[in-house]
Design a protein around this nucleic acid. Sequence first.
DNA 1: AGGTGCTAGACCGACCGTCGGTCGGTGAAC
DNA 2: GTTCACCGACCGACGGTCGGTCTAGCACCT
Lengths: 234, 234
Amino acid sequence: MRIVKSAGLRRQELLDIALKLFATRGYDETSVNDVIEAAGLSKGAFYHHFSSKEDLMKALAIRYAEDAAARARGVLEDRSLDCFERLSRFLSRMRDTKAAATPETYAAFAPLFNPENIDLYERTRLAVNEVVRPMLVGIIREGVAEQTFDTPDPEGAADVILHLMGVTRPTVAELYAARSRPEIDRISRRLLQQMTYIGTVVDRILGIPEGSIGLADCHTIDEVARVWHASAVA
Amino acid sequence: MRIVKSAGLRRQELLDIALKLFATRGYDETSVNDVIEAAGLSKGAFYHHFSSKEDLMKALAIRYAEDAAARARGVLEDRSLDCFERLSRFLSRMRDTKAAATPETYAAFAPLFNPENIDLYERTRLAVNEVVRPMLVGIIREGVAEQTFDTPDPEGAADVILHLMGVTRPTVAELYAARSRPEIDRISRRLLQQMTYIGTVVDRILGIPEGSIGLADCHTIDEVARVWHASAVA
DNA sequence: AGGTGCTAGACCGACCGTCGGTCGGTGAAC
DNA sequence: GTTCACCGACCGACGGTCGGTCTAGCACCT
């Protein structure tokens, strides 16, 4: 039985399937045969749409990155907000956890936090940063100019801040791996604490009053814990 | 022709060879056959010493980590120094660049900065942090107690500082890839700037006067550039 | 409007070389 | 003579290739 679909549609299908498989088994442990079996497609069809297995991963990373960049863009270019407000909103959109605060995105972002997929994570991070770094540098420069921020090296500050977003990764990974209710609660509390602290680090990096940047709030974390618990049970 | 050596010696030989191959081609692109060919050994001999290819990489990561942990330990446990001095020396020993400031270690650490070996890098980082984090937390706690440092979350600060060590990785990787004299000079200058800035970030994180922590000095960087240039030519 | 011929490209699956890994056996050293 | 470093033929699975097939849709003719 042969089902023909448009190239774009089939590509997305294959990406969705790869997403799920990479989330559970990881990139290395997922064979091309696994993917095409799940898709009900032939080897030839797969290599008609992707030039290699690695090309499949790259495409996934690009899809992630475009999503993340889109989330960031709107806020960063809103000239009606002062640079402090823009930075604050920007950071709350960028953080990894936010992405997985709804059931749909929970499943979609899982592979990024599977420790076996550092490669995919790193590729995504690089692609995101390429788009987002110039915007962030712009905000910080503006903030320094209008004396809201105080830092000797806006570009360095941007690099460090973007890098800091990765501090919580191991904790988020633990959260994905957690299965029982108390475990999820414990880890999500630790995550909240980490994110709070990272907020104050950003405050100090930019020389603004402590407590200005709120990366986390109890409500969001509880929401995340709730969604993830639901997913864990299912 | 059959050459018999002690297990320990042969293991180290295989690790050294893997080091070189991973540095140039990366883990995935290096086959077990490549390793045993370079070692002049059989497949069976390899699997007599390592249970899998991944086991080989783990062993490499552990060797790296033990080296790094040993470098850190002496300083951190020296009770004759105040916690500020200990932190300062600790950071200067931990940083990636320092490791490669001599010709021998240059070659030994190269694979860690090959972008294709993030997996190896990450494993090493985790292993190092497991040993080093408690020490760093101890110093920071002490510093807070004697009011040298000011931070609301010593553990969080330790995590962030350890994580910050990775900011320079892409630049170091570029440096390894560079081949011409002017290119090496340009990149090493950028590296110096990055490291200087990271020093001031640590200052702010710990609430100490700006300029207290010197991660980089011109002399070291010049030395690194010199060594690396010599290696690049060879 | 309804056939007809043709082409682009989505899809097929047998096949290939290489890989990581196994295993029964060999020989050197103590 | 026991131990253990070492050998190398062998295995199944993998990523990737290739010649070929099928079909949707378009141009063209009646």
